[in-house]
């Protein structure tokens, strides 16, 4: 397991989480794609040390890299690619409806804030 891969996973996760906490949807989408990369790298790292390409009848079974995590990682990449596109479409729609792509306030929070404001007015 190489230290540079681990650092890359850590870095991607940090930046990804930071971006997800942002208010604008385009940043959130970027955050998710970075997090997705981190998860895929983690899967690859879990498969053990790197080796030759896992091709049947060409390379020795002893020296090849573990192909199973690679298959899992490929599936995960396809899924996260599709979902990123869907989020982009949602952001586009939000922009068309409201003029920007900011995540709006939580409904329940808004209601509580209004209640609190009303009580203050009464006093």
């Amino acid at each position: 397991m190489s230290i540079s891969l681990l650092l890359a996973i850590g870095g991607l996760t940090t930046v990804g989480i930071y971006l997800i906490t942002a208010r604008s949807l385009s940043r959130i989408i970027l955050g998710f794609s970075l997090l997705g990369h981190a998860a895929v790298l983690a899967l690859l790292t879990a498969g053990g040390p790197a080796g030759e390409a896992p091709l049947a009848n060409q390379n020795d079974a002893e020296t090849i890299a573990n192909p199973l995590p690679q298959a899992l990682a490929l599936t995960a990449i396809v899924i996260s690619f599709g979902l990123t596109l869907y989020l982009l479409a949602l952001a586009r729609r939000q922009q068309a409806l409201t003029g920007d792509d900011l995540v709006e306030d939580d409904l329940e929070d808004l209601r509580i804030a209004t209640l609190a404001a009303n009580e203050e007015d009464d006093e």
Partner: peptide, 21 residues
């Protein structure tokens, strides 16, 4: 829907990390 998708996407990413662990 954005909250829903973001929340579930985050949980799915955690799932993927969990698989790696």
């Amino acid at each position: 829907g954005m909250t829903y998708v973001a929340m579930n996407l985050f949980a799915s990413t955690l799932f993927l990390f969990g698989l790696a662990f």
